[in-house]
């Protein structure tokens, strides 16, 4: 099984690699189109700022490449937001895989949301076998709205898309690589999705 993590100017590539290693998977980390296209599973991680990340992807034509991938793709955190239409973070046009807008949390509570929250209303094999009360680790100031692609919700200030899915594209707002056993379970489920 070839798992490729897309390398770009965003953090947590190392943490995602370690998490996969703990599952016995050794991923390739690459920004080369041929390597990414030949993968069985692609992981699109991300910690950082949307416009900087999008600029990097565009400069390398990775934006088109990601949209055209046919194998299961898993966006994580900023990865999820970049797969949406548009982000309020520096008014950034994103990849448009999910027809969803990314907005900034209103400041009714502390922003960023930092810590463990439940993942609810789950409807995807990504969450198979998780206990009814499952917590994942969040650090984010922006969220994807609820849409027809929403496959799980979390409530913080308002309900938002904890996870999205369309065709072969999956994405999680939380950090599975830092979400204990629940996170490992979600990663494992992703790698079990039929290619």
């Amino acid at each position: 099984m070839r798992v490729v993590i897309i390398k770009y100017n965003a953090g947590n590539v190392q943490s995602v690699t370690y998490a996969l290693n703990r599952l016995g998977v050794v991923p390739l980390i690459s920004n080369e189109p041929e390597v990414i296209k030949s993968a069985d599973y692609v992981i699109f991680p991300g910690v950082g700022e949307a416009s900087t990340a999008m600029r990097y992807l565009k400069e390398r034509n990775l934006d088109r490449l990601i949209k055209d991938l046919k194998q299961p793709v898993f966006g994580v955190c900023l990865g999820l937001q970049l797969m949406c239409n548009h982000s309020e973070e520096n008014n950034t046009n994103c990849l448009g895989i999910f027809d969803v807008a990314v907005k900034r949390f209103p400041k009714d509570l502390k922003v960023p949301q930092m810590g463990w929250n439940t993942i609810e209303e789950r409807s995807s094999p990504l969450f198979d076998g998780l206990p009814p009360e499952a917590y994942v680790y969040y650090v984010h100031s922006f969220y994807a709205e609820i849409s027809t692609s929403t496959i799980a919700q979390t409530n913080y200030i308002l309900p938002f898309s904890a996870a999205l899915q369309k065709d072969n594209f999956y994405a999680l707002q939380a950090h599975p690589e830092k979400s204990g056993k629940v996170g490992e379970h979600i990663l494992k489920n992703f790698l079990n999705i039929k290619n």
Partner: peptide
């Protein structure tokens, strides 16, 4: 630590 630990 990062290789071993699955929490932040």
């Amino acid at each position: 630590i990062a290789a071993e630990i699955n929490i932040p």
